[in-house]
């Protein structure tokens, strides 16, 4: 499967509710193999209920200037969240279906995680 086929797919919760669209896919870099990069393991999906636009790195906490643009992009992606891959039950051509109830993990690391859905 191609990464581009995962991106922009709608994500549906266990009860069919619309959680947003996949805007990015998070991997974990495995240990390096000598001179080479290690394996990339898929661990989570980044899902945004509001916008499919590219985020320019602002929401990952690395870029926060100029303030005007950072604020605007933060507002566009205000409820973006991280959905662990373990919660995904199936991937279809038109949507991704979760199999379990998933806790809300806000994408913005400056927001704390609460345990309610």
């Amino acid at each position: 499967m191609l990464l581009s086929e995962l991106l922009d797919l709608p994500v549906r919760g266990r009860d069919g509710e619309d959680l947003g669209r996949v805007v990015d896919v998070r991997f974990r870099r495995g240990a390096r193999r000598g001179e080479y990069e290690g394996e990339l393991e898929l661990i989570a999906l980044i899902v945004s209920p509001h916008s499919r636009m590219s985020m320019y790195g602002y929401e990952r906490g690395r870029v926060n200037r100029p303030a005007v643009i950072a604020t605007w992009i933060a507002w566009i992606h205000r409820r973006s969240r991280v959905i662990p891959w373990e919660c995904v039950q199936r991937v279809d051509e038109d949507a991704i279906a979760l199999g379990v109830a998933v806790p809300v993990i806000p994408l913005n690391i400056r927001r704390s995680i609460s345990d309610s859905d």
Binding site: L3, D24, V25, F27, R28, L40, I43, I46, M55
Partner: peptide, 14 residues
């Protein structure tokens, strides 16, 4: 951990 997996997070589109 899903937000910061051991400092080894890598977002493919970004």
């Amino acid at each position: 951990w899903y937000r910061d997996p051991d400092g080894r997070g890598f977002d493919a589109r970004l």
